[in-house]
Simulated scan of single mutants.
Amino acid sequence: MSLALRLADEADKITTARFRARDLVVERKPDRTPVTDADVAVEDAIRAVLAAEAPDDQVAGEERGGTAGAGRAWVVDPIDGTKNFLRGVPVWATLIALVVDGVPVVGVVSAPALGRRWWASAGGGAHTRDALGERAIAVSGVRDLSDAYLSTTHLGTWGEYHSREAYLALVDACWENRAFGDFWQHCLVAEGAIDVAAEPIVNPWDVAPFQVLVTEAGGRFSDLSGVARFDGGNVLSSNGHLHEAALKVLAENR
């Protein structure tokens, strides 16, 4: 955990210096998603620290590649929410997870433009830091979908990767919905501000820290078939009470 927090500190130095910079360099990757010079600089800085501090560990990052096989692997998204970052929207974060034999055991999410950081370790609970200080966090106690607060990232991806009708059925089953998007919605689930977050398409580095963050906060994290994994290509995080009900709605309306 100490090393993960240090990695987040290094990332914050770079991202805050480059956020809203007039000379920010933006390119497109083969999948047409944007990447900035800050994304690459953050991942390179994290890899440099890990090479010195944990040279035997694997590293899998969004920009430089790599895999998280057996043993210890660090899974890194240097800037989750790059589209927000390059537009000057302050909702973006660096995501860092230590995965051991395929299971995340340490997770850190650092969103310096929001003044927020979240972290968790297996057996160590989930925590956050904001303007009010540091505190332990826990999921909500909402037990009925009709009382639930729901979030996703981009509605358009449901039609392409899963089922737009299924997600809209889940919207109709819930009390309120928003698109907080990307990292933030899963952090909000962990701290009990919202109850369910669903995404039809994700990469492993997009969600690795949330498996440990949400579960240590007392919630549940799985793919859309209900399997507890971060590399299934889609994800549902919840306060646990609502998980099976949300999975059922999504399955029945595909």
Results as ranks from 00 to 15, higher is better:
1 M>Y: 15
2 S>H: 12
2 S>I: 11
4 A>T: 10
10 E>V: 11
12 D>Q: 15
12 D>E: 14
14 I>D: 10
14 I>T: 12
17 A>N: 08
19 F>R: 13
20 R>Q: 12
22 R>Y: 05
22 R>W: 05
25 V>G: 01
26 V>K: 13
26 V>L: 14
26 V>W: 07
28 R>K: 08
30 P>M: 06
30 P>R: 08
32 R>L: 12
32 R>N: 11
35 V>D: 05
36 T>R: 01
38 A>R: 04
39 D>Q: 10
43 E>T: 11
44 D>W: 04
47 R>V: 15
47 R>G: 06
47 R>T: 13
48 A>W: 00
53 E>K: 12
57 D>A: 14
59 V>S: 00
59 V>Y: 00
65 G>V: 13
67 T>L: 01
74 W>C: 03
75 V>Y: 14
77 D>P: 05
77 D>I: 10
78 P>I: 07
79 I>C: 02
81 G>I: 10
85 F>V: 13
86 L>T: 09
88 G>A: 03
89 V>A: 02
96 I>W: 15
96 I>P: 12
96 I>E: 09
98 L>I: 05
99 V>M: 03
105 V>A: 07
107 G>K: 01
108 V>N: 02
109 V>W: 09
111 A>I: 14
112 P>Y: 06
118 W>Q: 14
119 W>Q: 09
121 S>Q: 07
123 G>E: 11
124 G>N: 12
128 T>F: 08
128 T>Y: 07
129 R>P: 06
133 G>C: 09
135 R>Y: 01
147 D>N: 12
150 L>R: 14
153 T>P: 08
157 T>E: 08
161 Y>F: 02
163 S>M: 13
165 E>M: 06
168 L>P: 01
169 A>P: 10
170 L>C: 15
173 A>W: 00
175 W>D: 07
175 W>I: 04
177 N>C: 04
181 G>A: 11
183 F>C: 04
184 W>V: 05
185 Q>R: 11
185 Q>Y: 11
188 L>E: 02
188 L>N: 01
188 L>Q: 05
189 V>Y: 03
189 V>H: 04
192 G>E: 06
193 A>R: 01
194 I>E: 00
194 I>F: 00
195 D>E: 03
195 D>G: 06
195 D>K: 08
196 V>Q: 00
197 A>K: 05
197 A>D: 05
197 A>M: 07
199 E>R: 00
202 V>M: 03
202 V>F: 02
203 N>M: 06
203 N>C: 03
204 P>F: 07
205 W>R: 05
206 D>Y: 12
208 A>P: 07
211 Q>S: 07
214 V>P: 13
217 A>L: 12
218 G>I: 01
218 G>V: 02
218 G>Y: 00
219 G>M: 03
221 F>Y: 10
222 S>G: 13
222 S>M: 14
222 S>K: 15
223 D>Q: 03
224 L>N: 15
229 R>N: 08
232 G>Y: 15
233 G>A: 02
234 N>G: 07
236 L>H: 03
237 S>W: 00
239 N>T: 04
240 G>N: 08
242 L>W: 05
244 E>W: 04
247 L>C: 08
249 V>M: 01
250 L>W: 11
